[in-house]
Each structure stands twice: as structure tokens, then as C-alpha cells.
Design a protein around this nucleic acid. Structure first.
Length: 922
RNA sequence: GGGCGCUUAGCUCAGUCUGGUUAGAGCACCUGCCUUACAAGCAGGGGGUCGCUGGUUCGAGUCCAGCAGCGCCCACCA
């Protein structure tokens, strides 16, 4: 592509005109796909990311935008570094979440899933996820994600189902999966069991009621004994009966009480153990038992035991031999086990009814407000009901051990680091995982039951019972927790349990980029499964991104209506704009704030930067023209200060960007490159070489500028490419190329720059900094003294480091242009004018006879002298401090001395100037 | 109840690990410019007792302790 086309470049970047085409070219070029043979046969070094598969419940939101942009930045960077990069895309069937969405959809047709039946309902879900799944993948393409689309997976794909089966059966055979009746978290709306992680505690203010349970006639002596032992929560009833007091936040569960527990060492209640109390309303007697779990210091020190509706009570019951009585239906209504008056009532209605009935009998001793974490279903937010139920569980402790060790010994690292401790704490206290779900959408549990009660867990559907030969097998109706399949993702996507080439080439992977919310749900479990089934970690780095929030700090969510659609942003401002905006805010451990009410303002920074890159490129292409461009070598003798400077800066920026990428400091990468490109290349370098690129300029100087410009833009585009891939690739493709240098096919596979410190020079950078300061100072003085824009002036410069003035003189053309100065005289200026001093000691003087107000200038000098005196005093004081001089490093002290000398010189010069002016005006 | 994090400019945040020029950025604000790449721009400028108190140190935004406010995670106090 020749530079001729450059004249066609629009003055404004139009992302819609370039992004889809560019993406199409990348796809056509096959740049996103790396075959396993590259690693296995050619020995290339792999770099693998598996996408956190988005749920097929809905199109992507900005959180996905952030997460996937980060992954793409890492993938593009590693690809340019020459790694055999594979980024596996895909989607998650999201069991409970998707089932809910489809249930809502058919509800609008007046249908319930039971109206359709399992098979038809699942067909509906498939129809839904086919659409959403495709939408999601298209969205990823729109934001520029360079995924290996040939490896796209869905967690319900046929081969992934095989992986799930293999894992289930294998864990079952090892005794790590078991079935049993325990208290689980039950969502009465979704009508399924949930894992502990899926029941989200939410601080809720409720009421703690104190209830009286009367003693049975035969136990009154025990009650008396307890009172004598100091039991304050045991006493007379108004009608002469004896009672004890227990507390509860869920009074309706009292109907299922089968005991009251006290601590075995609680002296007050020792006499009560074995006593019997009347369970009010239920007309049953229940025993008092002793159990270590009871905290004597809390409440009355007596606990009502409801084994079927509370996990602790269940355990107490198991230890003490109490039997559970289930008093609720799956949808949390009171069942047949309760007195007729309460049957059929919803748990909250029942709560009111039970309290009313108890009050009537005078059995409510009181209440108090009570704050506690009430568990809610993470998908529908219904209050979870602890429920006794037969479910499948995974025994986690043995699985957790290697995964915990991996964190402790640094095999797996976490960024930000503090998540490591969170992870380890969870791992150390891990509890068994309830994996069965009473849903229709998901991986069916690969277990069959025969009429004789035999349980068959099988990799292939069995036709008869291996134990009794029965052919009347029935498969377990439940499906698995959606995370059961997600946890296999890092190896199931590569074809496991088959020993595929992909698996050998790309497992283990490298970086897991995800949200902290799913550290336990997903990340921890992937690591456990990695060790269990592959013997090694699925990835070595876990990078946890921030949360995308609105301007008020609220998490963006569909229900709050404060979300921003990534596609909308891409269409309006381009993927580059969105990516830069997100990445530049992605400081490690920090959330991202975007104004959903002013999307334009939210993404203006990124849009402006992309446009700036575009225009710089446009200028360069127009200025460079069609003539051949040289490499730096042949034009070395013509390089000017600014050429050497920008090349030097390039080396440092390259090194810094690489280091920051390695440490996931993406915010620093983005801002560092932004500053380099906009603040140094555009604001200084391009401006300084404009005159040299012009037609009449010296040929040697022009070729040096052209060569430098091409070099610097090429490298800058490479460095920026991972963050803003489209605009950089578009310009890079049109950039003239130095003769004799092989040109990569596309920027996407251009090698990542290596810093070359041979071409970096602090001396050059210092000199250039002085020059920049000089120009800024002249501009400032011009502005301060109101010199009209169009009016050219002369400046006088003196002092400063050796050689600085010579260099300045050599660079006169550039300075003259940037500062709008007529000429520079290396001599001391006199008369009325404006004074400036640079930090390297150079003084400048702008003669302004007739322009400035003398009185104002005198006042300015007096103010300046006052400020200087303060600085001089401070520095002297510091140097007079013996401790400082003797203990601080010599270079620090010397710096202070130099500073003092400089300040004193300035002071005396200003004094002289002031004296001069005072003589002149008055 | 346990653990963790945050507090720096009007706003959103870097900088703290490894103490050392005048504490930075983007946005917002003020002033002047349609200067032939870019007004989505250019140039200049204002704005900070670095949450509070104390300590270590020649020197603290940075290290230590305490306090306050905010936030997150975990947890079986009925």
C-alpha cells in the first residue's frame, strides 16, 4: 500500500470505516489461530488464556468489555513477543440463570415449564442460547478480541459433556463425590438446592423473638432445680406452669422443633438435660438435650432445635439423636406436618400466624431487633430456606490441598496480591460442595438407579444394572451446578479427557483474567480440578479486575438500569476509544467509574486519543510523501537534538511499557504511552521537525527527520497496538517503510520492541528538557506580558550549563518557530523587559520596551524576591543542619548546595534588575 | 465476630512495596488562539495542611502505632 492513499485520510477518525474491515483482514490472515504443531513440533513458546465464558443469559455488559479488553491486550502483546498465543473463546450455559430467563420468557406466554415438560422446555432454552451465544461472540469481535475462533466452545458442547461425566464418575469412584441427606440452601422460587457460595448473605435487620416453652408436668422438678442453680430464663408461668425461654428469628420453624439444647457444662441448666417441654401449638413433647455447640452466653443459653430447617440444629440432632421434622413444602409453605391452622401458609404468613397464636397463649416473652446476614439466592434474590434434602456433594478438603499449596509456594500468583490471602483463607476453611440442582437446564447427573436401589455412576449410559442386571434403570433427574462444568474449562476446551495435541500444547495455560466475585465459584475450583485431573495448575497468574461502576459508585447492573452497552460505545466512538478508556482506568485493585448518563463524556478521553493518533499519523503520512525513507544508520550524521531525544525517550518508554505489562500495570502502560505519544511525539517532536520536513529544508536534515519519524511512529504504533489495535494497525499499514528492512505482514504480528539503551542518553534528554523549558518560559513570558500572538520578539540568553547555549543556537530554527521568536542572542539583555530563569540556570531576557508596565514589573520582581528569600532561607537552614550534612548521602547534600548557589545567584540578579528598574521609572 | 482494602486537586485516580528536587495524570475550571495533522485541537494558567494524632528518621504522601470515616470478603451466635 503506497503513501499515495494518504491524501484520502479523513481529518477525523471514523472507526466504523476502519474497524470492521481491519478485523476482517485479521480473520482472513489467520492471525488469531495457532495450531498445536507450532508448539509440539516447532517448539514455540505457548501463551494461553481461556476466556471466562460469558453467561448465555444476556448480551455483554461493560464489565465484559473491561475484562475482555484486558485479555486482548495481554494476548496481543504476547503474540507480538512471538509467543504461540491461544485465546480460547466461548460461552457458559449458566444453568440456573439461563433457566430463570427462559422461565420468565415463557411466563409471558402464560406458560410454566411444567406445561412444556422437560424435553420441550430444554428445546426452548437451546433456541434461546443459540441466539444469545452468537450475539456474545459477535460482540467480542466488535471490541477487537483476537480470540482463536476455531476453538470456540460452549460448556454444553458434546465433548465438554464427556469431560463432565469423566470427572463426575472419576470423583465418585474415588469417594470424593457422595450423596446424602443434609441441610442445604434451598431457593423456594427456583425450587433447587444451591451451594454455599450461591447463597449470598445480606445484612438484614430483623427481629429476634423470645418464646416460652412450658415444661411437661413430669419435668417441673427439673425446672425447679434449674432455677435454684441460677437459671434466670426458667420460671413460673402466670397460670402456674413452668417454662423456659428460647429465641428465634424464624418463629415459623418452631413447629418443626424436636428438642431444646443447652451446653453440657452450663451449671444453670444441667438439671434440665433429659427434661421434657411441651412444644406450643404443635401438641408434642420435646426433650432438652446437651450439646457443645450451644453458646451459654448468647440469649437465654438455650436453643430450640429444628433439625430439618437449620444446619446447626441438624448437626445437634445428629449428635443427640433427635429426629428431624420437615414442616415446609419446597416452595416454602407449611406442610402437612403442622397443625391444620397453619397448613398451606407461606413461611412469612406462617410466621405472623404462629406469633399471633403464641401471643394468645402468652408464650411470647418479648422481642428485640436483630441484625444478621440473611442468605439470598444469587440468581433471583429470594430468601434462601435451609432445607433437609438428599443431594450430591463433592468432598473438597482433599482436592483443596494441592490448590492451597500452589498459592503458598507461588506456583499460582494473584494480582492484586491481597487476594492470595482471601483465596487461602477460603481454601483452608473449605466446606463440601452441593452440586446437584433440581433444574432441567444443565449437565444431567450421570447416575442411574435400579429398582433394587443400586446406584450406577457411568461414563456411558448403562442399559442394565451391573449388580442385579435389572433393565429398569432410571437416571437421576437432577443436573449439576453450572460451575461443575466451568471448573473444567481450562482443559475441557482442549478436548480432555482425550489426550489431544491441543491439550499437550496448551495446557497448562498462563493468565486467568476475571472478576474477584468468582474467585471461589470458579478460579479456586479450576485450580483444584487442574491438579486433580492434570496434575498441575491450569494457569500461573490470576489477574482480578476491578468492577465497573457508575459515577455514583454503584455497580453497573441491568436491574438498576445504569449499564452502558459496549456495542453502543463501539458504534459511537469505536472499539479503540472504549478500550483505551477502560484500560487507562484499570489501575491494579481499582474499580472503574463511568458516567452512564453521559456516555460521551465517559469515553471522550479514549475517543480523543484515538483521534489524536489518527491525526498524527495523517500528518506524518502527508509530510513523508512517497520518497524512499532511510534507516537511521545512513542518516546518523544529520540527526538533530530532537531526533536523538525522541529516540532516547522511545527506549525508556519501551522498557517501561514492557515492565508494566509484565506486572499487569495496565493503567500505567496506557497513561505512559498516552503521554509519550501525545505529550512528546505530537506536542514536541512533530512540532520541532515541521520546518525540517518542509520542501525547502536542508536535504540531510530532512532525511534524518523522516527516518526518525518513521522509526518512532512504527515503534509507537507497536507499543500502542495491544490497547488501541485498530487505529494503529490502519496507520501502520500505510506508513512508509525504511529501505532494506523487511516488513511484517501486519502490525498484529510485528515484533514487540526491545529497548536499545545504546540509543538512550540522559545527556540528550537533559539538554532537550532545558530547551523545552526555555520555550515554555518564553511562551509564558509572552503571555504574561501580553505580547500579541503575531508579534515576533528577540530573546537574550546567558548562563546555563556548558554547551547549552551552543545547542540552543544550533536548534534556533525549531525554537524560533515554537516560541514565536525572531532570533536568539547569546548575550546578557539589558533595559526594560521580562526575565526568566530555567532550572538549569539559564537566564533569559525578553526586551519589552514599551510593552510592559514598569510599576507592574517592579512589583513582580519584589514578589519574586520575597519568594526566593524563603527558598534561600529554607535551603540554608537545611545545610546548616549538621545531622543532614553528615548523614544524608553526599549527592543529596551536593544537590542542595548547588541549589543554594543557584538561588543566591538568582537573588542577586533580581536585586540588580530591580535596582535598575527603580532608577529608570521614578 | 474474624480478615482485608481505601482516605492525595472540584471529580475519578496514579505515586506508598524500595523514605530524598518544586507530589503527578485525565476530566472539570480560567485566559488567549479557527497557527495548513487534529477545535475530539493548540498555548498558558489557577487549584493539594497527601483523613486525623503521635512516633521512627537529618528528612515522611511513602515506614510504625493509635483514632476516625468509607467499602469489600468470610462466618453456624439461635
Amino acid at each position: 500500500m503506497g503513501a499515495v492513499v494518504t491524501s484520502e485520510l479523513a481529518p477525523r477518525l471514523d472507526p466504523r470505516a476502519i474497524e470492521p474491515l481491519r478485523y476482517g483482514r485479521w480473520m482472513d490472515g489467520g492471525y488469531f489461530h495457532v495450531p498445536a504443531s507450532d508448539v509440539l513440533e516447532e517448539g514455540r513458546d505457548p501463551y494461553v488464556i481461556v476466556i471466562p465464558p460469558p453467561n448465555v443469559t444476556a448480551p455483554l455488559h461493560m464489565g465484559h468489555g473491561l475484562n475482555n479488553t484486558i485479555q486482548d491486550v495481554l494476548i496481543r502483546w504476547r503474540r507480538m513477543q512471538g509467543r504461540a498465543t491461544v485465546w480460547v473463546p466461548g460461552t457458559d450455559h449458566a444453568g440456573i440463570a439461563t433457566q430463570n430467563v427462559v422461565e420468565r420468557a415463557i411466563a409471558s406466554e402464560g406458560l410454566h415449564r411444567s406445561d412444556l415438560g422437560r424435553e420441550k422446555f430444554v428445546e426452548r432454552v437451546w433456541a434461546f442460547v443459540d441466539v444469545t451465544g452468537k450475539t456474545i461472540l459477535e460482540q467480542l469481535k466488535a471490541i477487537g478480541a483476537s480470540c482463536d475462533w476455531e476453538r470456540t466452545r460452549f460448556t454444553l458442547d458434546e465433548d465438554l459433556q464427556q469431560a463432565v461425566r469423566e470427572v463426575f464418575v472419576s470423583l465418585y469412584e474415588k469417594g470424593l463425590i457422595y450423596r446424602g441427606e443434609y441441610i442445604i440452601n434451598w431457593c423456594p422460587r427456583c425450587l433447587t438446592a444451591l451451594s454455599n457460595e450461591e447463597a449470598e448473605g445480606e445484612e438484614t435487620q430483623g427481629t429476634l423473638w423470645h418464646l416460652r416453652y412450658p415444661f411437661a408436668e413430669s419435668s417441673i422438678p427439673a425446672a425447679r432445680a434449674a432455677v435454684e442453680a441460677g437459671a434466670t430464663s426458667v420460671g413460673y408461668f402466670s397460670d402456674g406452669r413452668w417454662y423456659l425461654t428460647v429465641s428465634t428469628t424464624r418463629p415459623e420453624t418452631m413447629l418443626g422443633d424436636t428438642g431444646v439444647a443447652v451446653h453440657p457444662d452450663d451449671e444453670r441448666y444441667k438439671a434440665l438435660v433429659g427434661a421434657r417441654v411441651e412444644l406450643p401449638l404443635a401438641g408434642r413433647q420435646i426433650p432438652v438435650v446437651a450439646d457443645d455447640h450451644v453458646d451459654p452466653a448468647f440469649g437465654s443459653g438455650m436453643v430450640k432445635v429444628t433439625p430439618a430447617h437449620d444446619p446447626n440444629d441438624f448437626e445437634i440432632a445428629q449428635r443427640t439423636g433427635l429426629l428431624p421434622i420437615d414442616v415446609m413444602t419446597p416452595d416454602a409453605r407449611m406442610n402437612e406436618a403442622v397443625p391444620p391452622a397453619f397448613r398451606g401458609l407461606d413461611r412469612l404468613e406462617a410466621r405472623k400466624a404462629v406469633l399471633a397464636a403464641l401471643r394468645e397463649e402468652g408464650l411470647v416473652a418479648g422481642d428485640e431487633t436483630h441484625t444478621r446476614a440473611v442468605p439470598h439466592c444469587y440468581r433471583c434474590h429470594t430468601v434462601v430456606e435451609p432445607r433437609l434434602s438428599e443431594q450430591w456433594f463433592v468432598k473438597m478438603k482433599p482436592l483443596a490441598e494441592p490448590a492451597l499449596q500452589a498459592s503458598r509456594d507461588g506456583t499460582v500468583t494473584f494480582t492484586p496480591r491481597h487476594w492470595q490471602r482471601v483465596y487461602e483463607h477460603w481454601m483452608e476453611n473449605i466446606r463440601d460442595w452441593c452440586i446437584s440442582r433440581q433444574l432441567w437446564w444443565g449437565h444431567r447427573i450421570p447416575v442411574w438407579y435400579c429398582p433394587a436401589g443400586h446406584v450406577i455412576a457411568a461414563r456411558q449410559d448403562p442399559t442394565s444394572c451391573p449388580e442385579c442386571g435389572s433393565k429398569e434403570l432410571e437416571q437421576d433427574p437432577d443436573v449439576l451446578d453450572t460451575w461443575f462444568s466451568s471448573q473444567l474449562w481450562p482443559f475441557s476446551v482442549f478436548g480432555w479427557p482425550q489426550e489431544t495435541d491441543d491439550l499437550r500444547a496448551f495446557y497448562p495455560g498462563h493468565t486467568m483474567v476475571t472478576a474477584p466475585e468468582i474467585l471461589f465459584f470458579w478460579v479456586a475450583r479450576m485450580i483444584m480440578m487442574g491438579y486433580e485431573f492434570r496434575g498441575e495448575t491450569p494457569f500461573t497468574e490470576v489477574f482480578l479486575t476491578g468492577t465497573v461502576r457508575d459515577i455514583k459508585g454503584r455497580k453497573m447492573s441491568k436491574s438498576l438500569g445504569n449499564g452502558i452497552d459496549p456495542l453502543e460505545v463501539v458504534h459511537a466512538y469505536g472499539a479503540d476509544a472504549m478500550r483505551y478508556t477502560l484500560v487507562s482506568q484499570a489501575a491494579v485493585g481499582t474499580d472503574i467509574h463511568l458516567d452512564h448518563e453521559n456516555v460521551e463524556a465517559a469515553f471522550a478521553n479514549g475517543r480523543n486519543f484515538a483521534n489524536k493518533i489518527w491525526n498524527a499519523g495523517r500528518f506524518a503520512l502527508m509530510s513523508l510523501g512517497d520518497a524512499p525513507v532511510q534507516q537511521i544508520g545512513p542518516v546518523a550524521e544529520h540527526l538533530q537534538l530532537e531526533d536523538a531525544w525522541i529516540i532516547s525517550r522511545l527506549q525508556r518508554v519501551t522498557a517501561q511499557a514492557t515492565e508494566d505489562l509484565e506486572r499487569f500495570r495496565l493503567h500505567e502502560v496506557a497513561e505512559g504511552l498516552y503521554h509519550f505519544f501525545w505529550g512528546e511525539i505530537c506536542d514536541w517532536y512533530l512540532e520541532l521537525i515541521k520546518a525540517r520536513l518542509a520542501p525547502g529544508a536542508d536535504a540531510g536534515s530532512r532525511e534524518a527527520a523522516r527516518a526518525t519519524l518513521v522509526l518512532v511512529l512504527d515503534r509507537a504504533f507497536r507499543l500502542l497496538h495491544p490497547i488501541v489495535p485498530f487505529v494503529t494497525a490502519e496507520l501502520w499499514a500505510r506508513l512508509p517503510w525504511p529501505v532494506g528492512v523487511p516488513r511484517p505482514d501486519d502490525l498484529i504480528v510485528a515484533p514487540w520492541p526491545e529497548p536499545d539503551f545504546e540509543h538512550a542518553s540522559h545527556e540528550v534528554e537533559r539538554t532537550m528538557a532545558g530547551l523545552q523549558e526555555l520555550i515554555v518560559e518564553v511562551r509564558r513570558l509572552r503571555k504574561e506580558y501580553g505580547v500579541p500572538e503575531g508579534e515576533r520578539i528577540t530573546i537574550h540568553v546567558t548562563g546555563g550549563p556548558d554547551g547549552f547555549l551552543d545547542t540552543v543556537s544550533e536548534q534556533a530554527a525549531g525554537i524560533l518557530q515554537l516560541a514565536r521568536v525572531d532570533r536568539i542572542r547569546a548575550e546578557r539583555g539589558t533595559g526594560v523587559g521580562a526575565h526568566g530563569v530555567l532550572s538549569n540556570g539559564t537566564e533569559l531576557f525578553v526586551p519589552l520596551e514599551g510593552v510592559i508596565d514598569l510599576e507592574r514589573e517592579r512589583q513582580r520582581l519584589r514578589d519574586e524576591l520575597g519568594r526566593l528569600r524563603g527558598l534561600v532561607e529554607g535551603t540554608r537552614k537545611k545545610l546548616a543542619n549538621e545531622a543532614f550534612v553528615s548523614r544524608a548521602p553526599e549527592e543529596v547534600v551536593q544537590k542542595e548546595r548547588d541549589r543554594l548557589t543557584q538561588l543566591e545567584e538568582q537573588d542577586s540578579k533580581l536585586r540588580a534588575k530591580l535596582a535598575e528598574l527603580e532608577g529608570e521609572g521614578s
